[in-house]
């Protein structure tokens, strides 16, 4: 086979691989959205699920997913920022720094089910909190923290060295330089990354099965008693999220319309990830333009 022919054949094969992938992925997305959107209506996203009969919704699960996301981010963001700042600005070349970097690598490659089991051991059993939002949030924090550190570090690395020099040359202390010059300049990158990470947290299920649990008490949005298990914001109540719900109705569910419920819930999950992604991209470029705008 001569080189020209080989070139042609290879190009055709590669192109067809690429189109095959596009086809699979587009088909996947189209399938989810097509099936799901016909299920989704106001009633579906607000009403509680049924346990035996058809017609239930996913209201509490949707609420739980968002609430858990917020709790997780409240834990991860400061820790991730702190660790990212330390590694990019202070960390000397020594064994401790090496250990921290290896830990990040280990934590980010752990299967999420293992993170969930660790959560079960420590947050659920040892502390006695049981299946609860707080246990789930802490497990998700373990799962999300290495990513947040990497995001922070990468964002800080894009801050021009000249900015840091300018501040230090004015006699501003290193800490003040970090908080008032470096961080503001790194914010677009950090925010974009955080929103993307939120998408990942939002869809995570395996780490939650044995931490936040697979059931949700009936929520009473008029309740004033935050210690009551029906108070939506009580962090010590169990909470099944949307992603966990999809898994559960398909494997252990007894409702006759499991398929429809899962269709709708999957579409909402995928749409949320889409929204997180688009927001991240749009927001990142918007804030970048605002900071460096020439007009």
């Amino acid at each position: 086979m001569n080189a020209k022919l080989a070139n042609r054949v290879a190009t055709i094969i590669i192109t067809s691989f690429a189109y095959l992938i596009i086809l699979i992925l587009a088909g996947l997305l189209g399938y989810i959205l097509y099936n799901g959107l016909s299920v989704i209506d106001w009633d579906f996203v607000t009403s509680p699920p049924e346990s035996l009969s058809a017609g239930g919704g996913i209201g509490p699960q949707l609420f739980n997913s968002f609430y858990l996301l917020i709790l997780t981010m409240l834990i991860t963001t400061p820790l991730g920022l702190g660790a990212g700042i330390y590694l990019s600005q202070y960390a000397p070349k020594n064994k401790l720094t090496n250990g921290i970097r290896t830990s990040i690598e280990v934590l980010s490659s752990l299967p999420s089910i293992v993170v969930g089991l660790f959560g079960l051991l420590i947050f659920v059993t040892y502390t006695g909190w049981g299946y609860s939002l707080i246990s789930g949030a802490l497990a998700l924090a373990v799962f999300n923290l290495p990513l947040m550190v990497r995001i922070t570090e990468e964002a800080i690395e894009t801050v021009p060295k000249e900015q840091i020099e300018a501040s230090l040359a004015l006699g501003i202390s290193k800490w003040k330089t970090i908080t008032h010059v470096i961080l503001p300049a790194a914010i677009p990158g950090i925010l974009t990354g955080t929103i993307l990470a939120s998408g990942r947290v939002f869809g995570e299920a395996a780490a939650l099965l044995f931490t936040a649990g697979m059931s949700s008490p009936a929520l009473d949005f008029t309740s004033m008693d935050i210690t009551s298990s029906s108070h939506p914001l009580n962090p010590f109540r169990p909470a099944e999220t949307l992603a966990v719900h999809i898994w559960k109705v398909n494997t252990e569910g007894l409702i006759p319309d499991a398929r429809e419920v899962a269709d709708g819930a999957s579409a909402i999950l995928v749409l949320s990830v889409l929204v997180f992604n688009i927001t991240a991209r749009w927001f990142g470029s918007w804030i970048y333009r605002r900071i460096t705008s020439h007009s």
């Binding site: 991730g80 920022l81 702190g82 330390y86 600005q89 202070y90 830990s103 420590i122 923290l145 290193k174």
Partner: peptide, 19 residues
């Protein structure tokens, strides 16, 4: 500042070791 950020980074190490 240095101490606080070091604590944050150390939490990663502690978590990985305890897991």
């Amino acid at each position: 500042g240095r101490t606080l950020t070091l604590i944050c980074a150390a939490i990663l190490l502690i978590t990985a070791i305890s897991i």
